[in-house]
């Protein structure tokens, strides 16, 4: 049976503000799931807390709306317990890079096979517009009383340095492009991070849909708006590590970091870095310690006999303690 886009929708009333970039991200995720024909029960969409955190409720798949900043930790636990699950995380920028920063950082060291989508709207939407960790120093959005006094984190370079093996940036209203990024992230074996620029029309009057569309930048020749976002792949930028050799890896990482600082009138979107040579945490465990891990998920391991007694023969283990 072919799964249709509607199979990934729920009947829940969506209470995001009109014009919110989250709508674009939501449809891109649903389209990606449909394109990849992932049955709803095999996908688990996690989220943290924030406007972005509501995403799972709007997707017909296992939806786990967790705690502020902790979505990634929940997601990793689930993936290890059942590596056959397709695990996604809808993260807020404050959620992921602020309160959840520690998990964001350390997940890179593991490279568990999952896909993180950051709803990067420069603000804390659900708490009414405070500065998020991606808002630049000195910027004053309409929701702020004073210009932002803390510096911003660059999510792309952070992800590259932390060890994520697929790092990309998308734009909420370039839905088709975003869908492809999400599909690549899902197909990538390892931790994928996609930072999605998401306009929040309610609290952010700086990074607006018009601003991304460059309505303030006119082509002197044609007089038309010059969109700020452009596709990296159209420029010959090659993010993919081909040999896995250290020198090449460092070169690709450096290139991604450098590119990630391009901002202002020209904003690159697309894949910044991809390295498929790093084994996932699951593979590391399976290869060096637990051969059965990828054959039998822990979640489907039998633990009890029909009479309720343990099915594992404990004799060898207990004999170590016998005196």
């Amino acid at each position: 049976m072919v799964l249709k886009l509607t199979d990934y929708r729920t009947e829940i009333h969506n209470n995001w503000c009109p014009g919110c970039g989250d709508f674009g991200i939501l449809s891109a995720v649903q389209m990606a799931l449909a394109d990849l024909q992932i049955p709803p029960h095999q996908a688990a969409v996690f989220s943290g807390i924030g406007c972005s955190g509501k995403t799972p409720h709007y997707i017909n798949a296992y939806g786990i709306h967790t705690l502020h900043g902790r979505g990634l930790a929940f997601a990793q636990g689930a993936k290890l317990a059942n590596p056959e699950l397709e695990v996604l995380l809808a993260a807020g920028d404050g959620d992921f890079l602020g309160i959840g920063g520690n998990h964001a950082l350390h997940a890179g060291r593991r490279n568990i096979d999952l896909t993180v989508i950051i709803h990067d709207n420069f603000v804390y939407g659900l708490t009414k517009g405070q500065a998020s960790p991606t808002l630049g120093l000195g910027v004053k959005t309409k929701g702020l009383a004073k210009p932002n006094i803390q510096q911003d984190i660059n999510p792309i370079s952070l992800a590259v340095v932390a060890g994520y093996t697929f790092v990309a940036r998308g734009y909420a209203y370039d839905t088709r492009h975003l869908k492809e990024l999400i599909k690549s992230g899902i197909k990538h074996k390892g931790s994928a991070l996609i930072d999605v620029l998401q306009p929040c029309p309610t609290y952010d009057d700086i990074h607006t849909k018009d601003w991304y569309a460059g309505t303030d930048l006119k082509d002197p020749k044609t007089g038309r708006s010059m969109p700020r976002t452009y596709h990296l792949e159209d420029t010959g930028f090659d993010p993919v590590v081909k040999t896995g050799k250290e020198e090449e890896v460092v070169q690709k990482m450096t290139q991604a970091i450098t590119k990630s600082f391009e901002w202002g009138d020209r904003i690159p979107i697309g894949v910044f870095y991809q390295n498929s040579f790093v084994p996932t945490f699951e593979e590391r465990l399976a290869e060096t310690r637990i051969p059965a891990l990828l054959k039998t998920p822990a979640a489907s391991m039998r633990i009890a006999n029909p009479d309720g007694t343990p099915s594992l023969d404990m004799t060898p283990l207990l004999s170590k303690f016998t005196v």
């Binding site: 688990a44 996690f46 786990i64 967790t66 705690l67 902790r70 930790a73 929940f74 997601a75 990793q76 636990g77 689930a78 993936k79 290890l80 317990a81 059942n82 699950l85 520690n102 998990h103 950082l105 350390h106 465990l285 637990i290 051969p291 059965a292 891990l293 054959k295 039998t296 998920p297 822990a298 979640a299 489907s300 391991m301 594992l312």
Partner: peptide, 27 residues
């Protein structure tokens, strides 16, 4: 071929929430 997964997490917040995630998956 049974096994036990032990993960050293980055902090106790991750420790408890990872365990919850694994439990949701049925372990």
């Amino acid at each position: 071929s049974d096994y036990f997964i032990v993960v050293q997490s980055e902090d106790e917040i991750a420790a408890v929430t990872m365990a919850i995630g694994a439990s949701l998956a049925g372990v």
